[in-house]
Write a protein that binds this DNA or RNA. Structure first.
Length: 893
DNA sequence: GCTACTCGGGG
DNA sequence: GTGTACGAGTAGC
């Protein structure tokens, strides 16, 4: 028979003392297969001057475990040199390789590739990638261990196919008997409910709730926890999901379920095989669960990686991303609801909703596209792309490419090696990119052109052929490039480096995909292409970091330093050239970008000049190095190195689009109240977009006044922090803990506990700050006075002051003490000497309002500070710009 | 500016 | 499982 499947998971098992690789995948119709292959044995390489003796030692020590040994010719991975003879040792049991490796380690010069997981050894040798497609020919195989159609492979061929098979997803959420004042623990507290949500209807249902007692209604009643867990296993087996998801499933639900199963002596076979039981690995607070043939996706972890929020409770995240909230149940109520026949349904629908939300985060936001694309580019399995970091992806590509070109890959460094590396690093140092010293201030006259090197580090690596395999470690009569830091690399005409070669493939791959993406009309396919080009980019950019990563297989400080030294050299030369040959001022630059002042406000003109300069400079650069005209800052506020904000204009297919861009200026921080965040955003907006520093000053003054008069809603002043341990175990004095202790004192029957989030405000008094923290409710109830001084001087002013300082506005002035604050200032009238002309000129269009100071609805005359996103008022009227005594049509460009 | 330590999410 | 492992943010030097 012959099938084409997309690879979901790979593992191996032992059969008759030989490994049998099992590839799990799905065909286009969604049918699951397991492909078994026995055509590879584990192997690794040894560098030694006495292979005969080593061979004898291995055979006498490990006997039949050594399948064969042979002398092969390979290139060594570090340093340019010819092929040398290595001893290739082939064994039988993958899990015994570490023992062999450690036994022989001190008797030989070096060992290579003796720490490659066997599934990846197989995949790399057969060019199989995670989530890639293969065509399999072979015979059906009957087994009593594998739970899907099994094929004994005769041949496995990787095939090109961009499709992704629809994945069947199961989301689960457990509820646990929750004692007061203690976190549930799996050895004592049973699971009472398991909610399941299905991405494809299962037996006609979208979701189910298993309940460990008999209850009427739309639930699956069980007589015990044990029966409920058995039912869970049945459902997983029949529904047969590819993906199991849940919110924080990695650190709570999965380990808990597994520990309960262990506790109750149930067999933990949740995967697509019966012989391998699920196990959890715990390292510190992190746990990782592996289920053969399926993939565990933690939607919490994904959301945390992909989105930036102040906190990541399921409720907050779902509200923002899905527009839905959790059912309103506090964990403290769980026991009560569970015991109460009339209330248990609240708990049931709460659990049901949680599982639905966890599922929707995956099915609606489709975050897996990117991860699947990363699998296909790197070759790594989906589970490992989700759990692992950058290094596993890089290493998989390296192994594949090294082997193809006849190189062996080094082992991961051991403890001693890492110590050696860090000592060398201390001595030699590792330098990063060049950051040009900025002159802080607001640049609003004319424009700021931003030019940057397109993928600077990958381009440097390709252009100068930088790679451990091209590094010259001794004098040889070959052509080479010498980096500004002194390291030498043979030219690509002598030998193309492996990393430069991989990078060329990634970068060419990306531009091909991007071209296809621009032509693609179908939004679904477009999204997949976008994920793919993104994966190429991520991978390309990760190589530089890997070269300087101390735990890298191919770590070499000279390689890492060569890359950045070229970067510093290039950015400096470029800045000099723009200054000297074009007579333009360089305002700032960081690693791969320069910001150039240009005396015009005409976007199209600036675009044209900038593009020309970038092209001329590119023409003078060697290799694939390319300076790109990136965007225009219509106004640009720089506070210091790496801290700036700008009103950026970018041209896409001839159309300008604009946005505020901020780097290093934080407006959102956990320990700032909303008042600070909102004021910061408004102030930056006024300065950057409206160019109106005076208005921003007045705005801050107004806010200060509002704080003084206690007109600011308490909610805007509150900061929320969590209790992370028992209240007694805090050494220091923290405001939210003090507030929590007071809550406990006032209502001992319902004390706040670990995990609770406390929102507090600071009230007046002469105790230390933390002691003056109170909850909003209490402040309202007792009509306490907030500490206005604290909110002005400790919350609002510090970040605001940093911005105004570079504009020459002092703290006193913001407080209304310095310059006289006239009525007209407060009314928002402009002070001419500090106002910047931000009127916009556009070549093709002409509707312009000079200095719009505000916006107004043409229908109901409602005032707006900014033009609304839709360009319309709530009443439906069009938004016009107002300023300098007239009202005109505003054109968003 | 750097490194060491903390803590998240779940019930 | 040919394992040894998160990451952002803050405190403290």
């Amino acid at each position: 028979m012959k099938v084409q499947i997309q690879v979901l998971d790979v593992d191996y098992d032992m059969l008759n003392n030989r490994p049998i690789v099992r590839i799990f995948g799905k065909d286009r119709n969604g049918k699951t297969y397991c492909v078994c292959a026995t055509d590879l044995l584990p192997y690794f390489y040894i560098k030694t001057t006495n292979p005969k003796r080593i061979e004898e030692e291995l055979r006498s020590r490990f006997g039949g475990e050594i399948e064969k040994t042979e002398i092969v010719e390979r290139y060594l991975p570090i340093g340019y040199s010819d092929k040398i003879e290595l001893l290739k040792v082939t064994t039988r049991t993958p899990s015994k390789v570490p023992e062999i490796r450690d036994y022989i380690k001190d008797k030989v010069d070096d060992i290579y590739e003796a720490d490659i997981l066997f599934k990846y050894r197989y995949m790399v040798d057969r060019s199989i990638t995670g989530m890639g497609w293969i065509e399999v020919e072979g015979n059906p195989l009957r087994t009593d261990t594998i739970r899907c159609a099994t094929i004994e492979a005769r041949s496995i061929t990787p095939i090109e196919n961009d499709e992704n098979v629809p994945l069947r997803i199961l989301a689960l959420d457990i509820e646990v008997k929750t004692p007061q004042e203690r976190i549930p623990s799996a050895d004592k507290d049973p699971i009472i409910m398991i909610a399941l949500a299905y991405s494809e209807p299962f037996r006609g249902r979208e979701n189910d709730v298993l309940v460990a007692k008999s209850v009427p209604g739309d639930v699956i009643s069980c007589t015990s926890e044990e029966e409920m867990l058995e039912k869970l296993k049945d459902i997983i087996e029949s529904y047969d999901p590819d993906i199991i998801t849940g919110y924080n499933i990695n650190n709570f639900d999965m380990p808990y379920i597994i520990q309960r199963m262990q506790h109750l002596n149930l067999k933990r076979d949740l995967g697509r095989v019966v012989d391998k039981t699920v196990f959890c690995q715990t390292f510190g607070p992190q746990t990782k669960t592996n289920i053969t043939g399926r993939v565990i996706v933690d939607s919490y972890r994904i959301v945390k990686k992909e989105y930036s929020f102040k906190n990541y409770t399921l409720n907050t995240v779902a509200k923002d991303l899905l527009g839905e909230e959790k059912e309103d149940v506090s964990y403290k109520e769980i026991n009560g609801l569970w015991e109460d026949r009339n209330e248990i349904h609240r708990l049931i629908s709460y659990a049901r909703k949680d599982s639905i939300l966890a599922l929707k985060l995956i099915t609606e936001k489709k975050p897996l596209d990117k991860y699947i694309a990363l699998c296909r580019v790197s070759g790594v399995l989906l589970q490992d792309v989700l759990d692992g970091g950058e290094s596993i992806r890089i290493e998989n590509l390296l192994l594949s490419e090294f082997n193809k070109k006849g190189f062996v890959l080094p082992l991961k460094p051991g403890r001693e090696e890492i110590i050696k590396r860090s000592k060398e690093r201390e001595k030699e140092g590792i330098k990063g990119g060049l950051v040009l010293e900025p002159n802080p201030g607001l640049y609003a006259d004319g424009c700021v052109m931003v030019m940057d090197f397109k993928s600077l580090y990958p381009s440097i690596i390709r252009t100068f052929n930088i790679c451990p395999t091209t590094l010259l470690t001794r004098d040889l009569d070959v052509e080479y490039n010498e980096s500004p830091a002194g390291a030498r690399f043979v030219k690509s005409s002598v030998r193309e480096g492996i990393i430069p070669r991989i990078l060329s493939g990634l970068i060419d791959g990306r531009s091909t995909v991007k071209k296809r993406m621009y032509q693609e009309k179908d939004p679904e396919k477009r999204r997949l292409l976008d994920a793919k080009q993104y994966a190429f980019k991520i991978m390309a950019n990760a190589f530089y970091g890997y070269c300087g990563y101390m735990k890298a297989r191919t770590y070499n400080i000279h390689v890492a330093n060569a890359i950045t030294s070229y970067g510093r050299h290039l950015i400096q030369k470029t800045a000099d050239k723009i200054r000297n040959e074009y007579g333009l001022e360089i305002i700032y630059g960081d690693t791969d970008s320069v910001m150039v002042k240009y005396p015009s406000k005409n976007l199209d003109e600036v675009y044209e000049v900038g593009t020309r300069i970038a092209k001329e400079i590119t023409d003078s650069l060697p290799g694939v190095l390319e300076l790109e005209f990136e965007k225009i800052f219509r106004s640009f506020l720089i506070l210091a190195k790496k801290r700036y904000a700008g009103w950026a204009f970018e041209k896409h297919n001839g159309e300008w689009s604009d946005k505020i861009e901020m780097k290093g200026i934080e407006t959102v921080r956990r320990d700032w109240c909303d008042l600070v965040t909102n004021t910061m955003n408004a102030v930056i907006d006024m300065i950057i977009k409206e160019g109106d520093v005076n208005r921003a000053i007045s705005f801050v003054q107004e806010k200060i006044e509002q704080i003084r008069k206690r007109e600011v809603p308490l909610k805007e002043l509150s900061v929320t922090k969590s209790i992370t341990k028992s209240l007694e175990s805090y050494d220091g004095v923290l405001p939210h803990i003090e507030a929590a202790k007071k809550m406990r004192m006032r209502d001992p029957s319902n004390p706040p506990t670990r995990g609770d989030r406390i929102s507090f405000v600071i009230v007046e008094g002469n105790q230390m700050l933390s002691k003056r923290a109170e909850t909003i409710e209490y402040v309202k109830e007792k009509n306490l006075k907030t500490d206005t001084d604290y909110y002005i001087n400790n919350q609002l002013l510090p970040p605001i002051e940093r911005i105004f300082a570079v504009l020459g506005v002092s703290r006193d002035e913001l407080l209304g003490k310095g310059r006289q604050t006239s009525l007209s200032d407060i009314m928002g009238n402009r002070r001419p000497e500090r106002n910047h002309d931000l009127s916009i000129e556009m070549s093709p269009r002409e509707v312009v309002v000079k200095n719009p100071t505000g916006f107004i609805c043409s229908e109901c005359n409602r005032d707006f500070r900014r033009v609304t996103l839709t360009g319309r008022c709530e009443c439906g009227g069009e938004i016009y710009a107002s300023g300098q005594g007239f009202i005109g049509k505003y054109v968003e460009i």
